[in-house]
Write a protein that binds this DNA or RNA. Sequence first.
DNA 1: TATTGTTATACTCTATAACTATA
DNA 2: TATAGTTATAGAGTATAACAATA
Lengths: 152, 152
Amino acid sequence: MLDLSRYLPYLLNRAGAHIASAFNRRVREYGITLPIWRVLAALNHRDGQRISQLAEMTAIEVSTLSRVINLMVRKRLTGRRRSGGDARAVTVHLTAAGRMLTRRIIPVAREYEAVALAGFSKAEADMLRAMLVRLYGNMQRLDAALEIVAAE
Amino acid sequence: MLDLSRYLPYLLNRAGAHIASAFNRRVREYGITLPIWRVLAALNHRDGQRISQLAEMTAIEVSTLSRVINLMVRKRLTGRRRSGGDARAVTVHLTAAGRMLTRRIIPVAREYEAVALAGFSKAEADMLRAMLVRLYGNMQRLDAALEIVAAE
DNA sequence: TATTGTTATACTCTATAACTATA
DNA sequence: TATAGTTATAGAGTATAACAATA
């Protein structure tokens, strides 16, 4: 019928959920939650992103993200600025405190990645990364196709 | 600092969250949610599992799962039975309606897996599955190690 | 008119703990 | 005492839609 032990969405969810909940428990020690860490990591990657870009990167809904950012602003981790080009858009920026906290957590994040990849060769780990990127691209193309159908 | 485009937990979350939310929208057409589908798929794999086993398989918290099962019982998709050996334990079973609904959704689930794996060779897809299983095993070993530390 | 982001609402999930029944 | 599961509660997240400001 459906062999769950070979069903990719199942395997993906199980692995992802376990690493996420383990890391969520860990970042609590730094006074933040996993969604906040995701925003910090996204801004560390590229500062000054717009809400819609951050939502895409962190896989957090725009309306949820807007309130996560509120919380982060109250914690003095980020600030909002009106974007130059489009006055509707807002860009989000790390504060000095936000950058410092991110730097403290990065080594912990690397630890968890190392635990997850224990026993993997470098080539295997790279192949896994590349396949997850391709898989994401496939799902984005599906989203785009469904949007066209919905618009009809 | 931290190269997000090569950071495994990020890639895993992004791919998993996108396929999950796409499939969640789809199963709504069948009057159920993604957590309910996960329980159906787990019971289709092996019927009569205990709550704790289902929680592990579906990555849903036990207390949340207990209420998901309540909902499924009200929808006549599953039933509860007292387990023979241990009278504390409860086993969950698909009803005929639950089995029928699962059978209807399985082809749709396969479709989504096929979309996610578009462009992958069979060997690549199998390698991805195997690596996700290993990754999950690594995280389970971490959980076990942390429990020992917590007990001390 | 369409888009960007914020806010409101109801619902769902999580985390924690209290509770019942059994071991 | 410990374990399996249920229920209660508060805090977050999701989904949807209404809204303000701007394009």
